[in-house]
């Protein structure tokens, strides 16, 4: 039997909202340590990796590892029947479940839904736990804003790191521009900008994906950008007390 109860069901809804335009059908994996998900977008340029630790749930039980194939679109239809303040419980009964049960609980209502599961043949990738040569932490809303602004000018965005900070730049048909974000150690943690640069990087990415990734900014006030030259960048949103959502994006490279 598998059971996982979110004290804050709104959080689960935010996670689904954050990934729904990136991935369509996903395998949700549950085991004794928690729930995880890994899926690529249809063009295989981006990878979504979610980890929710067992300790972050109000209640968690998983006796045997299981894989639940879900349509994100259908999952969202069911989640629309819950309130943002509901507690949400996910549950399966059988060893090889064909449905995933949802209980939505508020002060004055309990709802039950069953979502049909699918058998998905999905590629599972081994993502190495590497050290990145540049790691930048910055406010997630600021990153969202920069991507939106520069995305107007060109479809590719450049990211350059140095000891001084991080620079975003674009070159398009209409002209070019750059935005430098300064390091600061303000007392408000959500406004802090930190750069750990062992080696500077200069990378280019399709801004369209960043704009999709930025839907996850509702999960955390800070975003962590980890980069190495000519490697996929990782954008990480820490989900407080529960785990993290990591979004990988393959770079554009000179041929």
């Amino acid at each position: 039997m598998f059971e996982a109860k979110f004290e804050d069901g709104g959080l689960f809804k935010k996670i689904v909202e954050a990934i729904k335009e990136l991935v369509k059908n996903v395998n949700l994996e549950a085991n004794g340590t928690g729930i995880s998900l890994q899926a690529m977008d249809t063009s295989h340029v981006a990878l979504v990796a979610l980890q929710l630790n067992e300790k972050g749930f109000k209640k968690y039980r998983c006796e045997k590892s299981l894989t639940m194939g879900l349509s994100i679109e259908n999952l969202q239809k069911i989640l629309k029947c819950s309130g943002n303040d509901d507690q949400i419980t996910l549950r399966t009964q059988d060893e090889e479940p064909t449905t995933l049960s949802f209980t939505f609980e508020s002060k004055n209502r309990i709802s039950e839904f069953q979502l049909n599961l699918m058998s998905l043949d999905q590629e599972q990738l081994g993502v190495p736990d590497t050290e990145y040569s540049s790691v930048v932490r910055m406010p997630s809303n600021e990153f969202t804003k920069i991507c939106r602004e520069l995305g107007n000018i060109n479809e590719a965005i450049g990211i350059e790191t140095s000891k001084e900070g991080i620079k975003f730049y674009v070159k398009g048909d209409i002209g070019e521009g750059q935005v430098s974000v300064k390091i600061n150690d303000t007392e408000k943690p959500e406004e802090r900008v930190e750069c750990e640069v062992d080696e500077p990087v200069n990378l280019s990415f399709a801004v369209r994906y960043f704009n999709l990734f930025n839907k996850a900014s509702a999960l955390s006030s800070q975003v962590i950008l980890s980069m190495s030259q000519d490697q996929p960048l990782v954008i990480e949103y820490i989900i407080e007390e529960m785990g993290s959502l990591k979004l990988y994006l393959a770079p554009k490279i000179n041929d």
Binding site: M40, H44, L47, E123, L125, G126, A250, I253, N254
Partner: peptide
Amino acid sequence: LKTQQSIPNFFTDM
């Protein structure tokens, strides 16, 4: 000219 890479070029199949 820069070419868009894909994720499986970097991460291996498990």
